[in-house]
């Protein structure tokens, strides 16, 4: 195999590739985010055959493919399954303050949510930490993931 000479200073032509999406929440997602927005509650769907509660809720069970019709309220508390401390933005510039992102396993459920952690220093976060959701005030909630402001260590 011989080397190929590649010119690195190729003259570029610049153009854009603009796309904007308008997405629906889906049948299960609509109900989940409506409950979150209007009542500040988390709901999941339960598969009785597989004995699994899905949060965020699913319309069907990915294990047995049954439609899921049993809606159960679940706590807005959970455990840090894993986390990262982000130091750079998408353009690789340093963030003014490192940001903690965690995958929070919702208590008693299969799955959970990825979200920011707040009211905690990055060096104090650990896997297994108990956390709870902090919701925005009702008037500010729009029916989306950011209706949850962040998760914080559970106050005991």
């Amino acid at each position: 195999m011989e080397k190929v000479n590649i010119v690195t200073q190729a003259q570029p032509w610049v153009d854009r590739f603009p796309l904007t999406g308008r997405y629906t929440y889906g049948v299960a997602g609509e109900r989940f985010f409506r409950e979150l927005k209007e009542n500040g509650r988390f709901f999941g769907t339960r598969c009785t055959a597989c004995d699994v509660v899905y949060v965020p809720p699913r319309l069907y069970c990915l294990r047995c493919f049954a439609p899921l019709e049993e809606w159960v309220e679940v706590p807005s508390t959970g455990t840090v399954h894993t986390f990262t401390v982000v130091h750079q933005d998408l353009d690789e510039a340093p963030l003014p303050t490192p940001e903690v992102i965690a995958f929070v396993q919702i208590d008693g459920c299969d799955g959970g949510l990825v979200h920011r952690l707040g009211e905690v220093a990055p060096e104090d976060v650990y896997i297994g930490m108990s956390v709870e959701a902090v919701l925005k005030p009702t008037a500010e909630r729009q029916g989306g993931l950011t209706d949850i402001a962040y998760f914080r260590p559970t106050l005991r």
Binding site: G29, T82, V86, L145
Partner: peptide, 24 residues
């Protein structure tokens, strides 16, 4: 687009969290 992108994710999140889970 519903569950994660509203947070403004960074691609590295997913790998960093997996690596952290593996190490832990």
């Amino acid at each position: 687009h519903i569950l994660e992108r509203p947070l403004g994710p960074n691609l590295l999140w997913i790998f960093a969290m997996e690596m952290n889970a593996y190490m832990n």
